[in-house]
Amino acid sequence: MAPLIALLVGTALARLPGFAGVAALDGWHPALRVGLALMFTLTAMAHFAGQRRTDLIAMVPPRLPRPDLLVTVTGVLELAGAVGLLVPATAPLAAAGLGLLMLAMFPANVSAARRGLTLAGQPVTPLVQRTALQIVFVTTAAAISFGP
């Protein structure tokens, strides 16, 4: 739920300066880029240290090699994508890449839900709810990628 909150609150807070006349944030599309960048910065942090990293490594489907490396690489890609979202010239490509990354990582969420794993001591998001969130996140990336 934290990623959704980061997306929504980040977007809303980024939009406020636009209402006050800041040209770079004058519109929902630029604010949405900020919200998605905040969301990916938040999620990427879990890839690098602590119990969340351990839990993410456990979420990688067992048939894939080097889950520790996969978690690190996906974290780096999330951070690079977040930075790319903040640069108007690279935002569409970054959003498309992040959308594809989310689709590629979704099987790990399915696997984790089916295996009853935990994330930070809590059960992973149930599959139906996780699928709905995934649709929101991928749709947001697509809106940025194909938007104005």
Rank of each mutant, 00 (worst) to 15 (best):
L32K: 11
V138E: 11
F48C: 04
T140W: 08
L13N: 08
A80E: 02
V22D: 09
S145K: 05
L42Y: 15
G10E: 13
W28G: 12
A82P: 03
R53N: 03
A91L: 12
F40T: 02
P88M: 13
R53G: 00
A6V: 04
A82G: 04
P61V: 14
T118A: 14
V60D: 09
D68W: 11
G116W: 01
A37I: 07
T140R: 10
S111T: 06
M1V: 11
A24T: 09
T11C: 06
L42S: 04
A108C: 13
D68G: 15
A94D: 08
A108R: 10
A132H: 08
P30T: 08
G84Y: 01
A94G: 02
A37D: 09
A2V: 15
M105Y: 04
F146P: 05
R15P: 05
M39F: 09
L42A: 12
A112S: 01
L69Y: 05
R52P: 00
L119R: 01
L79I: 11
T139L: 14
A132I: 15
F19V: 10
I57G: 00
R114D: 14
R33K: 12
Q129G: 07
A108I: 09
V76S: 02
G99R: 01
A104T: 14
T54A: 15
P107K: 11
H29M: 13
G121S: 05
F137D: 02
H47E: 01
W28I: 10
N109R: 10
L38G: 14
P148C: 07
W28K: 07
G116F: 00
L70H: 05
D26T: 05
T72R: 00
A120W: 03
T11R: 12
T118H: 14
T54F: 07
N109Q: 15
L56R: 01
I5Q: 01
P107I: 13
V83L: 03
A20M: 14
V124C: 01
M1I: 12
H47R: 10
L127A: 11
L103G: 00
A49P: 00
A37S: 15
I57T: 06
T139W: 13
L7Q: 12
L93A: 15
P123L: 12
P107C: 12
A141Q: 03
T125L: 15
P67N: 12
L79V: 12
Q122A: 13
M59E: 05
G97R: 01
G18D: 07
P123F: 09
L64S: 05
T72H: 00
G84P: 02
V87N: 10
T72D: 00
L13I: 05
